[in-house]
Design a protein around this nucleic acid. Structure first.
Length: 876
RNA sequence: GGGCGCGUAGCUCAGCGGGAGAGCACUCGCUUCACACGCGAGGGGUCGCUGGUUCAAUCCCAGCCGCGCCCACCA
């Protein structure tokens, strides 16, 4: 019962301190920093996937003897959190943040953080996350704040952080600058309006087009292409800007595209990124006509001031129409930039902001991936990373918000900025500069949330102090995260990590998929297709959810999650439980000092080898982050090999009267089960830990048991071949019975009509197994099958089941004919291949050999079946 | 416009140079003493299309068709 067991087991782990890395100096370090969730958020299914994969890697590393540290923490998520709290204030009818004032508002956010901040960590615990809570960090805690200040000041001193007045993406809702990455293009319906601007001397007009008529109030030029013959005579002359009345020049610039519209384009340097560059080239005035809320400001004509941008748009169009200068309008569907959080249209806006010289920092971050210091898995994500990094733009890091790291810059009376880690440091610098004490005012702005996130892998380990943790656990081993934050986060951690520590912050980046609903749609609250991980845990258990997420975590970029799949893996957990129960009921308990390499019994030697094989597969898969392969290998081994075959093989021995074979088989079954529990533990920690305790006297918990390292030399090819014959005899025999509708209750003898001496030995040795599993009455060796016995072939041996009384001759004839035809087709194809001279000449010898064997086997089988069919015809 | 990825069984996906696999769904038979969340047996696929490379192509290359995502684009 996972409901009660899971929390109990989690408490046991947590209280015993096993989540903290071992301090054994001999243990190699393995570390990961969690992608810190939003402190006021709650866990969604994407977190569940991300968390599960990290936990699998952590538990795997821990069991392999590493000092495994998975460091948890939360992000203050500046704009997102501020938004939530502002909404709460609005909803509760409280005064807004501006009326509250900065201090009161920030206090309010801290209150909210205290109240909701525990949600995520509780949810992570429910999933079984084995992170070291004693090292939990928060991006706004004192240590990390110190790291942030240190980084900002250092970068500033190095000229990599600077203040600049230029266009930013301005979010009028939050009234802050946002970075390019926080801008989301949305397709919307709009219009192209064609406006005529009269030449200043009244000798004509020039037509420009725009989708944002209100910006014309800030136009400072009209540009045409220098080679455009239509406009040659106009270059250097002026138009009189309607409504405003300002004369503005007609300039020549390559930016104007003669193919587009009239070939002339209005230039609004303060409100358009392209126009800004044109304005810089031509030293045009930059007139900002908007206020922070995107209303017209005092640079707009009297009578227009205070008007909202969209109202202004309408009014400009009306005005042009009234002036007889509207030359056309056409509808257009186009992409318009929106704030990703606010959802409102953002405006290019001219302000002073702090910038990070990302281009310079990117150089080493690119090199580190190029030379493999950091690898992406799947590797193709490197291309995405390179693409962005090689075209990176300066990063605007200041935000006009209140929730976040206050920028460590103080302004003097003349506006000069003094950047220092402390106010005292800034004051000292100011004193030095001015020659006396001057009043300083700290920058009101805070840093982009991602600025502190960029430091996460080393700031959480104590940087800038030279802590023991930093020395031991940095760089981290693997980062597990989603592709949606490669730019926001991964790239920036690479830049900052390399710049400040000289080492890439992680050796490997595993990019996990995005979870969609069963139909492939993105999960969203509005669509109502959200699967809440906690509800799934309640319904199926954390292990089943975890196994599902791991099993579905291939290299594809999305996962379509359905509850049917989770149900399937819940059944797997039940299967495991029942296998353990079987062992318990049959006295299979771990034996101290048991040596798997020394077992004698064929079935036991076989399962020992298969266990070693599965262990190797799973280990390699986990090493490579091939999570789905690991899950599939484990699933198949447990269900289709251990349960379906091995435990069935054990029954005749364990439930028989002969005591001689029992001890070894019990010990082997228990050992294999124990190994299974270990192999499954990273993925299904709860049920395996529970079964670990239930199936033996344990000194330690499974979570700290050593990972199995089994010799693949235990895979004995002879035993594998022998058991293949036993399996084939049973499986094919069952198929024959089923096809011919032989009742389950019928117990014919099994007659072995052809078997070479070694096969005969194997069949005799495993007779009890065959008798029980094929439900036959006995095993006889007799070259002459009785009349009406049904023949079948398995692994080169021939068998007959005397079930004449149940046979429908037509059905049996059809069965034989179908098999003969199949062999015939095989013979033809293989024969053709072997008749091809270039195949014989160029294909590797073992491939040719394989085909010769195939041909011989098919021919022999076909001959035998034809013989049987002839006998049948003789009867019928 | 630039980039990335995906088209394999009814559905969701593995496989990625030597006769196509899994889970779910479907059909048939089983209350067989671990398990009906089960056991056993089945049906079902010109591996998107067209060329090329190769003794051999689902797998490698090119082109095309279809789908998705990211970046840029408010003349």
């Amino acid at each position: 019962d996972p409901d009660s067991a899971e929390p109990r087991l989690y408490r046991l782990w947590e209280e015993s301190g096993v989540f903290a890395p071992s301090d054994d100096p001999a243990a190699p370090a393995f570390s990961m920093a969690i992608p810190p969730p939003n402190v006021t958020g709650s866990l969604h299914i994407g977190h569940a996937l991300n968390t599960t994969l990290q936990d699998v890697l952590t538990r795997f590393a821990r069991m392999r003897g590493a000092a495994a540290l998975w460091l948890p923490g939360m992000d203050h998520a500046g704009i997102a959190t501020q938004m939530v709290v502002e909404r709460q204030l609005a909803a509760s009818g409280n005064i807004g943040r501006r009326d509250m004032g900065r201090e009161a508002f920030v206090e309010r956010v801290w209150e909210w953080k205290a109240q909701s901040g525990g949600t995520i960590s509780r949810q992570l615990r429910r999933l079984g996350a084995s992170c070291d809570w004693s090292r939990e960090r928060f991006t706004l805690d004192e240590g990390l704040s110190q790291a942030v200040r240190k980084v900002f000041v250092t970068l500033h001193r190095q000229g990599l952080v600077y203040r600049d007045k230029r266009l930013v993406n301005w979010d009028p809702q939050f009234q802050t600058a946002i970075s390019d990455l926080e801008v989301e293009q949305r397709e919307v319906d709009g219009h192209y309006w064609h406006f005529a601007y009269p030449l200043e001397d009244g000798s004509g007009e020039i037509v420009v087009a725009t989708t944002r008529p209100e910006t014309m109030l800030a136009d400072t030029a009209v540009a045409v292409h220098p080679d455009d013959p239509r406009y040659q005579p106009l270059i250097g002359r002026c138009v009189r800007l309607p409504i405003v009345g300002r004369p503005i020049p007609i300039i020549a610039d390559d930016y104007a595209d003669p193919e587009k519209g009239s070939g002339a384009v209005k230039i609004t340097p303060a409100h358009d990124f392209n126009d800004f560059k044109v304005g810089q080239r031509h030293r045009l005035p930059m007139i900002n006509v908007l206020d922070p809320e995107a209303r017209l400001n005092d640079n707009a004509p009297v009578g227009w001031r205070g008007l909202d941008r969209f109202a202004a748009r309408k009014k400009v169009v009306e005005e042009f129409e009234a002036l007889g200068l509207l030359r056309g309008v056409e509808p257009v569907r186009h992409a318009v930039p929106h704030g990703d959080r606010s959802g409102v249209v953002v405006e290019p806006y001219l302000t002073d902001q702090w910038w990070v010289d990302a281009k310079t920092l990117a150089k080493e971050a690119i090199a580190a991936v190029e030379d493999g210091r950091t690898r992406f898995v799947p590797q193709h994500w490197e291309k995405t990373y390179f693409e962005w990094m090689r075209n990176i733009e300066p990063w605007c890091v200041s935000r006009q918000l209140w929730w976040g790291h206050r920028i460590p810059a103080w302004f003097g009376p003349d506006g000069r900025a003094f950047v220092a880690e402390t106010e005292a440091g800034a004051a000292e610098a100011a004193r030095e500069h001015y020659g006396r004490d001057e009043p300083l005012r700290q920058d009101e702005d805070v840093l982009d949330t991602w600025f502190s996130s960029a430091l996460w892998p080393f700031s959480t380990l104590g940087w800038p102090d030279k802590t023991a943790d930093l020395a031991r656990f940095y760089p981290t081993h693997t980062l597990v995260t989603g592709f949606d934050i490669i730019f926001f986060w991964v790239a920036r951690m690479m830049m900052m990590g390399l710049h400040f520590t000289g080492e890439a912050p992680f050796r490997r980046v595993f990019i996990n998929a995005l979870i969609r609903d069963a139909g492939g749609a993105k999960m969203s609250k509005s669509k109502g297709n959200v699967l809440d991980p906690l509800e799934l845990v309640d319904a199926y258990g954390a292990d089943a959810l975890r196994f599902t997420l791991v099993a579905m975590s291939g290299q594809a970029r999305d996962i379509r999650l359905s509850t049917a799949r989770i149900e399937g893996y819940r059944n797997f957990a039940t299967k495991l439980w029942n296998a353990a129960r079987f062992c318990e009921m049959n006295g299979c308990r771990p034996v101290a000092g048991f040596d798997p390499g020394s077992v004698r019994e064929a079935i036991n030697r076989w399962i020992v080898g298969e266990t070693a094989r599965a262990t190797g597969e799973i280990t390699r898969a986990l090493e490579d982050c091939a999570f789905d392969a690991a899950a599939t290998a484990a699933y198949r081994f447990v269900w289709n090999l251990y349960c379906d075959w091995y435990l069935e093989f054990c029954k005749p021995i364990l439930q028989g009267t002969d005591e001689a074979g029992k001890p070894e088989t019990r010990a082997t079954a228990a050992w294999a089960l124990e190994t299974i529990l270990k192999l499954l533990h990273p993925t299904m920690p709860f049920i395996t830990e529970e079964l670990w305790a239930k199936t033996g006297q344990r000194q330690t918990m499974l979570i700290v048991e050593p990972w199995p390292e089994l010799s693949e030399a235990w895979i004995d090819p002879g035993v594998v071949a022998d058991m293949a014959l036993v399996v084939g005899t049973i499986a094919t025999g069952r198929a024959v019975r089923a096809e011919l509708n032989v009742p389950v209750s019928a117990r014919p003898p099994l007659i072995v009509t052809e078997a070479d001496p070694s096969q005969r030995r194997v069949l005799e040795a495993n007779a009890a197994i065959i008798i029980q599993m094929l439900r036959v009455e006995g095993l006889r060796f007799d070259a002459a099958a009785p009349r009406g016995a049904v023949p079948y072939l398995a692994d080169g041996a021939a068998f007959a089941l005397p079930v004449a009384e149940f046979i429908d001759l037509a059905v049996e004839r059809a069965r034989l004919t179908k098999d003969i035809a199949a062999h015939g087709a095989d013979i033809e194809r293989t024969g053709q291949k072997l008749a091809n001279a270039s195949f014989l000449a160029r294909a590797p010898e073992e491939v040719v050999e394989e085909n010769r064997d195939r041909l011989a086997e098919a021919e022999a089988a076909k001959a035998k079946l034809e013989e049987a069919l002839a006998r049948l015809d003789a009867i019928g």
